[in-house]
Computed example of a mutant assay.
Amino acid sequence: MKNLIIIEAPSNLGLKQLRNVEPGVRKLPAWLKARGLHDVLQPQKVIHVEPPPYSMHLDKESGVRNADAIVSYSKTLSEEIKTVLNAGQFPLVIGGDCSILIGCALGLRSVGNFGLFFIDGHTDFVLPHFSETKAAAGMDLALISGNGPDKLANINSLKPYIAEKNIFAIGNRYLQNDYVKLITDSAISYYDLHNLRAAGMKHIVKKFLKKVESHNLDGFWIHLDVDVLNNEVMPCVDSPQPGGLSYEELRSIIRALLSSSKIKGINITILDPDLDPDGNYSKAFIENFSQMFPA
């Protein structure tokens, strides 16, 4: 893709530590580069945005772990995205965990009014009182759409960064009733994995693109959490679940989105190199992901 800029956002601030080990997603940008992603995509430039040190601090004001550090990092990341977008370039932001979406959405909001196509094996639409982990990576969709504590949801008084009505969220397969009700009660267009397949993936993409046009949006962003993929082809995630999209299904979605003139950028999250010591799953991801981009 012409004008491609890779922004490395190796933050793990949005995850709770499991098994007394710091989450390994911070290693993802360097890991993918070492395995050939940059060689295949040939970005014009690579920008590295270093996050604050990881901790497990629970912020009393917001009820979210590492809230102050995430706000600071989101502001820095948003400025890089703003610069890239204003230059007419295409940012590919490589996380890190899903809390990097806050910085991506904040950057978008600072230059216009955008939509979001959210591809994830979870809804990430919960508030601190509902969350067991109190970790922002499980709340990112709620926060960027103006829900939750203002410390995170209203940075620079720009709430919401992306309006609920301009968001499609697809691929969830954690179907606990109380969890799902939170997003179905919102204005987000929501399709769990079953309903996505039943409706037809290309049909859902067309509905989203029509909304982008009818709402006169300045463009849209793609959020890709790799845990939307089938656990057999992508088990290297912090919250694995049975089932998921095949690579063929994911390619059909992202190719259709990238063919639109309204696409402005994409972020990738959650692939944990520590859970893929041989690199085989990561190599398969690079091969498949690179095929989704136009030449």
Score class of each variant (00 low, 15 high):
residue 66 N to I: 01
residue 156 N to D: 14
residue 53 P to D: 10
residue 2 K to N: 13
residue 176 Q to H: 13
residue 55 S to W: 05
residue 70 I to H: 12
residue 235 P to W: 08
residue 247 Y to E: 11
residue 88 G to M: 11
residue 22 E to N: 05
residue 277 P to A: 14
residue 143 L to S: 02
residue 78 S to L: 05
residue 213 E to A: 15
residue 146 G to P: 05
residue 53 P to Q: 14
residue 294 P to M: 04
residue 277 P to E: 13
residue 195 N to K: 12
residue 169 A to S: 13
residue 228 V to S: 00
residue 95 G to H: 00
residue 101 L to Q: 06
residue 59 D to M: 01
residue 240 P to R: 08
residue 76 T to M: 14
residue 269 T to H: 00
residue 213 E to I: 15
residue 101 L to A: 12
residue 94 I to T: 02
residue 96 G to Q: 01
residue 243 G to F: 15
residue 87 A to R: 02
residue 153 A to R: 10
residue 2 K to A: 13
residue 277 P to F: 15
residue 260 S to P: 14
residue 137 A to M: 07
residue 129 H to E: 15
residue 148 G to N: 07
residue 65 R to S: 04
residue 31 W to R: 00
residue 216 N to R: 03
residue 24 G to F: 11
residue 40 V to W: 09
residue 148 G to Y: 04
residue 69 A to F: 14
residue 194 H to W: 09
residue 23 P to I: 02
residue 98 C to D: 00
residue 49 V to F: 11
residue 177 N to S: 12
residue 44 Q to G: 11
residue 275 L to S: 03
residue 138 G to Q: 06
residue 170 I to A: 03
residue 238 D to M: 10
residue 63 G to A: 09
residue 42 Q to H: 08
residue 235 P to G: 09
residue 170 I to D: 02
residue 52 P to T: 05
residue 17 Q to T: 07
residue 279 G to A: 13
residue 133 T to N: 09
residue 97 D to H: 06
residue 122 H to Q: 06
residue 154 N to G: 06
residue 83 T to I: 13
residue 6 I to K: 09
residue 250 L to H: 15
residue 239 S to P: 08
residue 115 G to V: 14
residue 155 I to L: 07
residue 5 I to G: 09
residue 282 S to H: 01
residue 171 G to D: 01
residue 67 A to R: 11
residue 132 E to A: 05
residue 154 N to Y: 11
residue 290 S to W: 06
residue 186 S to E: 11
residue 51 P to E: 06
residue 2 K to C: 10
residue 289 F to L: 04
residue 98 C to V: 02
residue 211 K to V: 13
residue 162 I to H: 02
residue 17 Q to E: 12
residue 163 A to G: 08
residue 240 P to C: 10
residue 45 K to G: 05
residue 39 D to N: 05
residue 195 N to M: 12
residue 255 R to G: 06
residue 61 E to K: 10
residue 168 F to T: 07
residue 36 G to S: 03
residue 217 L to N: 01
residue 215 H to F: 15
residue 184 T to R: 12
residue 6 I to Y: 13
residue 36 G to V: 02
residue 44 Q to P: 08
residue 174 Y to E: 09
residue 26 R to N: 14
residue 61 E to T: 09
residue 40 V to F: 09
residue 289 F to A: 02
residue 190 Y to V: 05
residue 162 I to T: 03
residue 221 W to K: 01
residue 288 N to V: 04
residue 51 P to Q: 06
residue 287 E to R: 09
residue 84 V to N: 02
residue 250 L to M: 13
residue 35 R to G: 05
residue 250 L to E: 10
residue 257 L to V: 11
residue 163 A to P: 08
residue 41 L to F: 06
residue 108 L to E: 01
residue 226 V to H: 01
residue 47 I to N: 08
residue 254 I to A: 02
residue 5 I to K: 04
residue 273 P to F: 04
residue 162 I to N: 01
residue 4 L to M: 05
residue 22 E to W: 07
residue 273 P to K: 05
residue 250 L to C: 09
residue 54 Y to F: 14
residue 192 D to Y: 08
residue 86 N to D: 12
residue 220 F to H: 04
residue 195 N to E: 14
